[in-house]
Design a protein around this nucleic acid. Structure first.
Lengths: 259, 259
DNA sequence: CCAAACGGTTCAATATATGAACCGTTGGTT
DNA sequence: AACCAACGGTTCATATATTGAACCGTTTGG
């Protein structure tokens, strides 16, 4: 692994539960030598990718990442475009909606919208890592990803987040087949208990899957009517989003009409 | 310069006018060896910081920066907080408002809001580099930055973007003195002709200036009434934003009441 | 059909990163 | 008050990763 990769891998230890990390913690987390971590973090700091807080001297992500993100959006405006789609889908379904994107071999939630209609909502956080098995978004992505990629994921040990989480690779493969036929993934309590969620894949101009659009509802609110409305609205929204970012679905993808 | 800094410096060549850069262009822009640039970009690509487009093989910023930006916002929610402040300030003044943040020794516009009230608006782009001299935001920041920093900026050759741009360091220093006293910077046509803009500095918890909040209006619309309303509204909005991000103005900063 | 420019690759020379041990400081415990 | 452990930061000989000129094969445009 090159020096640059090492430095950037240090950034992976930041997450919602850990927005600031001290030198020693980072040394332990990464398993690298302290002097190495120190020097790497110094370089990242000089470039504005991280900064040190005045109080303790722990590191947190720096302002430079905002500039890069704004430029990424200027080049590939997925988030900006998705915000409107999420908004409309939340209004239509009355439930929480979110977009997750494949970044390397990791699926991250990156944007969401709530519906004001109901007082109880499924809450979402951006930049959260989603498992592939056990989330509808993950399954939707996996079903349409490269077979090699899906197999690599399934060959790793699969953790059960709830008693409902499917962890048997064989059963998951069977479910993926179903998703490829229907074009939509459904999960009941696989990631959070009592959350019923639907997801559809999003494709780029090369017809490769880049992420998933999902609707998450409290299981208690999944009436027969909602079970009809949500998948239909979600399919439409997914197609719209793929279209708006200039993407298109691969040849075999189940088209609009399900009836 | 370490390898990591070199790699990250390559990312600085991306901007709004240049969202995709090929290997050869990047080699020329950076002045580095082609093999070096190639290896560095490969590492950045493996980490998801850049990606190569399918069509030509040019590089553009990758999805990983979105995740980091979302986490940065989770740690220091300046942008999220600013959006509401910008929105309200635009509604109140009827003009375009924007926030710029100091990133290293560079000032970048990072968020903006338009007012629907008028058909003609000053347009803004995010992630655009602002000069310190000649923009009200830059002057507001410079006036409250470390004296060393301000001097370093003023000792460089200063370009005139318009005939109105002040480029004489001595005159700029005099203007900065005025801004320190008034707490607000005003620029008429210094960056774009016919744009009249006001800006106030934003401070962090250490009472250090981190950026500026600004209102930009077509010069033609600057009635006597607006010349009263805009500075007053902007001062209030600036104080609100500084407060909401947990910051506070330094000791000498001119307080609320101007009357 | 050629020439130029492109992305990508090689390998010896060399500059750079590494890590064990070491500082001085801080904060908590006895 | 004295101690100790953990912290951020630093050193320097060693080892390893980076560098750059030259070289492919391919694509592009005249």
């Amino acid at each position: 692994m090159g020096t640059v990769s090492k430095a950037l891998s240090l950034l992976a230890y930041f997450n919602h539960g850990r927005t600031g990390i001290g030198l020693s913690d980072l040394t332990r987390l990464s398993g690298m030598n302290k002097a190495t971590v120190y020097r790497l973090m110094n370089e990242l700091q000089e470039s504005g990718f991280v900064e040190q807080t005045g109080s303790d001297r722990s590191y947190r992500l720096g302002p430079q990442v905002l500039r890069l993100a704004a430029l990424r959006e200027a080049a590939v405006p997925i988030l900006s475009v998705s915000r409107q789609v999420l908004r409309e889908l939340s209004d239509e379904t009355g439930e929480t909606t979110h977009l997750s994107l494949l970044q390397g071999s990791q699926l991250n939630s990156l944007s969401h919208a709530y519906s004001p209609r109901n007082a109880t909502r499924v809450m979402m956080e951006d930049a959260k890592v989603l498992t592939f098995h056990g989330t509808s978004s993950g399954m939707a992505v996996l079903a349409f990803a490269e077979p090699d990629f899906a197999e690599a994921i399934l060959s790793q040990p699969l953790e059960a987040r709830t008693p409902e989480t499917l962890t048997d690779p064989e059963k998951i493969r069977a479910q993926l087949d179903g998703i490829r036929k229907s074009g939509i993934a459904v999960s009941v309590g696989g990631f959070e208990e009592d959350v019923h969620s639907h997801a559809v894949p999003i494709f780029d101009p090369d017809r490769k899957v880049i992420g998933a659009l999902a609707v998450a509802a409290p299981a208690s609110r999944m009436t027969a009517e909602q079970k009809q409305l949500i998948p239909a609205a979600l399919r439409r929204a997914g197609a719209t989003l793929t279209y708006r970012i200039g993407g298109s679905a691969p040849a075999g993808f189940p088209q609009d009409e399900t009836a």
